[in-house]
C-alpha cells in the first residue's frame, strides 16, 4: 500500500469540493481547478486559458498555492517508526492544468500571489513591444486589463525592445509579432476548433516565437480565413483584422465596460474581436 493511500486528512472534506480562499467550490470529475473556479464565478487571473481549448499552462498567471491541509500518516513511518504531520502537498501550481481534487485548500487572491502575477505580467510587457497608447487593441486587450487588475504601474524591468516582424501579407488578417506573448491560444484554436494547423511556436527559451505553417512562412500562403477562431482569439494585439482598428470609441471598449475579473466575458471579447455587436 502506498504512503499516500495510508494518509487520511484530519479535516472534514466535503466530497467533490475544493476550497479557494475559504470558499467551498464544487467540481466534477475531470475538471481542473480553473474549470471549477470559473464555473463557480471565482476569477483566477489568466491569459493563455480559454474554456473549450486544451489547457496549456504557459502564462503562469493562474498560479495558485495548494496546501494548508494538515496531513498525517495513519500508521507509523516504516523507517522512523514515528508519526508525522506536514503539509505534504503545499505547492504552487497552474490552476488551468491541475486537476481539482476533493479537499484541496487553495490560495488564490492573496497579496503574495498577486505580486508574483504582477511581476510575470511586467515581464510579458518588457519582452515585447507593447505600446498601449497607440495600439488598436487598447481597451480590448486582456493583457492590458490584467495589468490594470494587478495594479501594474510600470514595466519595472528594462525593456528588451526586440526587433520583430509585421506580417501583413494576408488580405484580411495582420500578424504583429511585437505584441505576441506566446500564449498559444491561436495555435490551439487553429488546431482544435478550425481544424487547421496555421500557427506554431518555434525556438526555445528567449528565442521562442510564433511561426506560420506555410511554404513561405507568410500568412498569405497559409489556409487562414477571416472567420477562423484563431484570428479572433488573440488576447493581445498580435493578430488583427486589417483596416478595422479604432472603430470602437473610447468608453465602449470591452474593458471600459467590464472588469477583466468578470466571469463569462469570452463571448464579449470574441464579439469585439470579430467587430460584431455584443
Amino acid at each position: 500500500m502506498s504512503a499516500e493511500a495510508n494518509m487520511t486528512t484530519t479535516n472534514t472534506v466535503t466530497p467533490n469540493t475544493i476550497n479557494i480562499d475559504g470558499q467551498d467550490i464544487p467540481f466534477k470529475n475531470g475538471q481542473t481547478i480553473m474549470d471549477a473556479a470559473l464555473a463557480a464565478g471565482v476569477y483566477i487571473p489568466h491569459l493563455c486559458h480559454k474554456p473549450g481549448l486544451t489547457p496549456h499552462g504557459s502564462c503562469k498567471l493562474c498560479t495558485v498555492d495548494i496546501g494548508s491541509r494538515s496531513m498525517s500518516t495513519s500508521a507509523s513511518d516504516r523507517r522512523t517508526q514515528t508519526k508525522f504531520s506536514v503539509d505534504i502537498d503545499r505547492r504552487s501550481v497552474s490552476a488551468c492544468t491541475t486537476p481539482a481534487v476533493a479537499g484541496q485548500q487553495i490560495s488564490n487572491d492573496t497579496p503574495a500571489l498577486n505580486e508574483v502575477r504582477k511581476t510575470i505580467t511586467q515581464m510579458l510587457f518588457i519582452e515585447g513591444n507593447h505600446l498601449c497608447p497607440a495600439c488598436e487593441k487598447t481597451g480590448n486587450c486582456t493583457l492590458q486589463a490584467v495589468a490594470y487588475h494587478l495594479g501594474m504601474l510600470d514595466g519595472h524591468f528594462p525593456q528588451f525592445f526586440p526587433r520583430r516582424e509585421v506580417d501583413a501579407s494576408h488580405p484580411t488578417v495582420m500578424l504583429d509579432l511585437d505584441r505576441c506573448i506566446l500564449c498559444e491560444l491561436c495555435v490551439r484554436a487553429s488546431r482544435e476548433v478550425d481544424g487547421k494547423n496555421v500557427f506554431a511556436i518555434a525556438g526555445r527559451g528567449i528565442n521562442a516565437h510564433l511561426i506560420v505553417n506555410s511554404p513561405s512562412g507568410k500568412l498569405v500562403d497559409s489556409d487562414l480565413e477571416t472567420g477562423d477562431m484563431a484570428v479572433h482569439i488573440c488576447p493581445v494585439g498580435a493578430i488583427l483584422i486589417k483596416e478595422h482598428g479604432y472603430e470602437v470609441p473610447i468608453g465602449r471598449r470591452t474593458f471600459d465596460l467590464h472588469q477583466v475579473g468578470e466571469i463569462g466575458l469570452e463571448p464579449v471579447i470574441l464579439a469585439k474581436a470579430r467587430h460584431t455587436n455584443e
Binding site: K242, E243, Y246
Partner: peptide, 10 residues
C-alpha cells in the same frame, strides 16, 4: 512598416 489605419493615433 506600421499599418496606415494606425497612423493617426501614432
Amino acid at each position: 512598416g506600421r499599418p496606415y489605419w494606425e497612423v493617426p493615433f501614432f
